[in-house]
Design a protein around this nucleic acid. Structure first.
Lengths: 239, 239
DNA sequence: GGAAATTTTGACCAGTTGGAAAAATGTTAG
DNA sequence: CTAACATTTTTCCAACTGGTCAAAATTTCC
């Protein structure tokens, strides 16, 4: 082994002091974990908000605790008092995100008719791209990196949900209410087209220019996408 | 001004030694910049390849020179000999990327018919997502960060190209060969749906599962997208 | 009001990071 | 073969990084 560069392979081996709250909880596993104080709740929210801002732009590695602390308006050690590890902040963010992210697809109703359902799914996803662009970028950032921190959730929860909805789409196709096509790629295309307006926002703005165009881009996108998917997925008599 | 944290506001103020080649070039601005040696060309390629690997996953801030050097199989100072700054590596990568990236749209031919042209544009973009996923991710990473290092190129070259092709699409629509719709969002939707297969590859794989499904995903995507855009953009008699 | 608990601060630390300097080693054209 | 040049290695550095710790300041609860 070359003595020059030894990258500590086992970070968990480092003996690290426990966070106060953690230490206490560990001491009495059955004791109620003492409900969070007002300040704790507030500060944690401020920190998570700041972390969203920073992580969504620079990704996990590119973001620094100092940066997050600055955005959150507190000192680094103070921030570390609430979240003893950088990873912990990111984990919390991702956990909350996943739920929000799956909700719109979840509410696609098998008992409804395909076009209203698909249209309102597109609408909701587009609204999320408009109203929560940072969340979208945080998610995209994690994906680009290979989703190291949420891969299980993707493989289990997300996969199950998509499998379920793919079945719904197939049923609609069998009933002749929807053009026969690949339901998985159909879902992918809705994700892609809607999230594009959050993740590639700079590009969209730059191309549309800052004139009248750029302003109404979400409405225009909604109109365009509805037309594309409505016409694109209307069943046709076989050639 | 709080004396606590002063982040050096002017990094350019730091007196930095010039790279040998640069220094020479600066000394004799008219002298031929001495053609690159074989080794220089080879090593630069190796470095750019390694940098693509690393930057495309971690973004500019998240990537380290050490990492790139390791992937490139050389020491950090040795790498720095070829590219004296981290930013320079990234710049070179982005410059090369932009060209490659615009090519498929450029070749959309106004004299052709809309559906063959659009179909082959989709095909080419999908092939790029399959064959150059790292390039796609590098681009996506830059976008997520607000494209700080390529914003002018986006605002000028890309915008001009898209404006031009949007006109082509409008012409086709006027001729009744293509459904009347927003040409800009049409282009966005092609970008989004095709690049999705590179940028969100983990997710796509996870959802499709590793079975037969995952393998043929690019062919399936091609079929699905062709259908979506063909049907979705076929002109209709007005309601 | 005061003891106990919580929150904040400031000083500190070891490892990493981008980069500099110079010496040592290769390569190549004459 | 050798001088001039190109390349690589070794050593080093200051700034930044994630994180620790004890003490000080503040809040909470009786």
């Amino acid at each position: 082994m070359p003595p020059t560069k030894v990258k500590s392979a086992d970070p968990a081996a480092t003996p690290k002091r426990q966070h106060k709250a953690d230490a206490k909880a560990a001491a009495h596993p059955h004791a109620k974990p003492r409900p969070l104080t007002r300040i704790q709740r507030e500060k944690q929210d401020v920190i998570l908000e700041a972390a969203l801002e920073v992580f969504s732009v620079h990704g996990f590695r590119g973001a620094t605790i100092d940066q997050i602390a600055e955005v959150a308006g507190m000192s680094k050690p103070n921030l570390l008092y609430y979240f003893p590890r950088k990873e912990e902040i990111h984990r919390r963010l991702m956990a909350a995100l996943l739920e929000t992210w799956l909700a719109p697809l979840q509410s696609m109703d098998a008992d409804g008719d395909p076009f209203p359902e698909i249209r309102s799914y597109i609408r909701r996803k587009l609204e999320m791209a408009r109203d929560f662009p940072r969340e979208s970028r945080l998610f995209a950032n994690e994906m680009l990196q290979g989703a190291p921190r949420i891969i299980e959730m993707i493989e289990v929860d997300l996969k199950n949900l998509v499998d379920e909805k793919a079945k719904v789409l197939l049923t609609w196709m069998d009933q002749g209410k929807l053009a026969r096509t690949d339901p998985y790629h159909l879902i992918f295309s809705i994700w892609a087209t809607t999230q594009h307006y959050a993740d590639f926002d700079v590009q969209v703005r730059a191309v549309l220019g800052s004139g009248r165009n750029g302003e109404g881009r979400f409405e225009d996108a909604a109109r365009y996408l509805e037309q594309l998917f409505l016409y694109g997925l209307t069943p046709r008599p076989k050639a």
